[in-house]
Simulated assay, not measured.
Amino acid sequence: MSSSRPSARTTARSVTPLGAVVEGALAGAAGTLAMDGLLYGRYRRGGGTRDFLGWELSRDVRTWDDAPAPAQVGRRLVEGLFARRLPDRRAAFVNNVTHAGYGALNGAVFGVVAGSLPAARVRHGIPFGVGVWAFGYAVLPAAKLYRPIWTYDRATLAKDLSAHLVYGLTTASAFTLLRGRRRTRAVR
């Protein structure tokens, strides 16, 4: 005989596919901000003097020549899709949109995968962060925006990996919170 009562095991609120995408994107945005906080701290410890908002919004990016990889990826996407050149004055804006969008998009993917599991776990952020890190080192060299991974020293790769682990773990934590896991106990 079937009962509509929850089992004594931990249960999680079910999430719709759209809910998983939205909650994942929001979690990815939180993960991106946490990663940026770590990177900004490293920047300041290394002698950087800009305030967080100026650093975060790429206010020193004036041309495509000084634009980082996210800006270059965004530029290629926009120019390829619309067959229209973007002026230098758009470099910082494209960098910001691409960086935030990539973090949110990866979070949405995480949300779909984690939302299909019986319960999202913070520890799922570890392989997720490693995967996002590895994907960048596979795709960006092919796009001629990074050098091949084997040309970077261990310290550089470790710093980048640790930042992506912060991203992954924060994304997983935020998704778990947004998903609203609830523990229920069966009435005995």
Results as ranks from 00 to 15, higher is better:
Asp88Leu: 06
Leu86Val: 07
Val97Thr: 01
Ala91Trp: 10
Val73Tyr: 05
Val73Gln: 10
Leu77Gly: 10
Phe93Pro: 04
Val97Gly: 12
His99Arg: 07
Asn96Thr: 10
Arg90Asp: 08
Ala69Glu: 10
Arg76His: 08
Phe93Glu: 00
Ala91Glu: 02
Pro68Glu: 10
Arg89Trp: 05
Arg89Phe: 05
Pro68Asp: 13
Phe93Asp: 02
Asn96Cys: 11
Ala71Leu: 14
Leu77Arg: 10
Ala71Glu: 14
Val78Glu: 01
Ala69Tyr: 15
Gly80Tyr: 09
Val73Lys: 00
Ala92Pro: 01
Gly74Trp: 06
Thr98Leu: 10
Arg84His: 09
Asp66Glu: 12
Pro70Met: 15
Val97Leu: 14
Gln72Glu: 12
Gln72Ile: 09
Val94Arg: 06
Arg90Phe: 02
Ala92Trp: 00
Ala91Tyr: 04
Pro70Asp: 02
Pro68Tyr: 06
Asp66Gly: 08
Leu81Asn: 05
Gly80Asp: 12
Arg89Val: 13
Ala91Pro: 01
Gly74Val: 01
Ala92Cys: 08
Phe93Ser: 03
Arg85Glu: 15
Val73Leu: 14
Asn96Lys: 08
Ala83Cys: 11
Asp66Tyr: 00
Arg75Glu: 04
Asp88Trp: 05
Gly74Pro: 07
Gly80Thr: 08
Arg90Glu: 05
Gly74Thr: 02
Asp66Arg: 00
Ala67Pro: 06
Pro68Cys: 15
Ala83Leu: 15
Arg76Gly: 01
Thr98Cys: 11
Leu81Ser: 08
Ala71His: 02
Val97Cys: 03
Pro68Gln: 09
Gly80Phe: 04
Arg85Thr: 11
Glu79Trp: 04
Arg89His: 11
Ala92Val: 02
Val97Trp: 10
Leu86Lys: 04
Val97Ala: 14
Ala91Leu: 05
Leu77Asp: 08
